[in-house]
């Protein structure tokens, strides 16, 4: 976890500094949130699934809280990026992307375990990154302006779906 946090903060700072002064690019603005979610995703399953499953505590609310915290951490890149003054990033943009990406990571953890939880957010980001700027709001939801309804709905659905599925099912063994 300390390693993940260090990686995420260093990455965010580096992007903020590198992007400083350049033209506004949503791909660069979305990258820090992706990095934080990727770093947090590995923690979505424990070290021993059998012992975790045999535990008496209520897992569902704790799992949900874990995903929410990962999302909040990703959204917290906003003030960092604003302080570094690189990309003109808005709160709506950061919140939408943080929620959607955290939901994707939760879906990944529930489907494939914490080790591979990074694949869905990373994969979707890669697709969006290389998709030419055509009218495909669902595909490129994380790069669109915060006012775009289709993008917001896509992110919301991913966040809610990931949160509920992961909280109920838990990480895959």
């Amino acid at each position: 976890m300390p390693a993940s946090l260090a990686l995420a903060s260093a990455g965010t700072a580096a992007i903020g500094l590198l992007a400083g002064g350049g033209p506004a690019d949503p791909r660069l603005a979305a990258l820090p949130q992706l990095l934080v979610v990727l770093a947090a995703s590995a923690g979505l399953s424990g070290q021993e699934p059998a012992l975790d499953r045999a535990a008496a505590i209520r897992w569902a609310p704790r799992r949900a809280l874990h995903v929410v915290l990962a999302g909040l951490l990703a959204a917290a890149t906003l003030p960092v990026l604003q302080a570094l003054g690189g990309q003109p990033i808005t709160a709506g943009f950061a919140a939408r992307n943080a929620a959607g990406l955290a939901g994707l990571a939760a879906l990944g953890a529930a489907a494939a375990g914490g080790t591979y939880a990074w694949t869905p957010p990373f994969g979707w980001f890669t697709v969006a990154f290389f998709t030419p700027p055509v009218n495909a709001p669902v595909l490129t939801w994380m790069l669109l302006p915060p006012g775009d309804h289709a993008a917001a709905w896509t992110a919301g659905a991913l966040a809610a779906g990931g949160l509920l599925y992961y909280a109920a099912a838990g990480p895959r063994r």
Binding site: G46, Q47, E48, A50, L51, A54, A55, A56
Partner: peptide
């Protein structure tokens, strides 16, 4: 299952740990 799980001890064949 929460109530019985409080009173079960389990050592898996191999176990992961932090």
């Amino acid at each position: 299952l929460r109530e019985p799980r409080r009173r079960i001890g389990y050592l898996p064949q191999e176990f992961g740990y932090y």
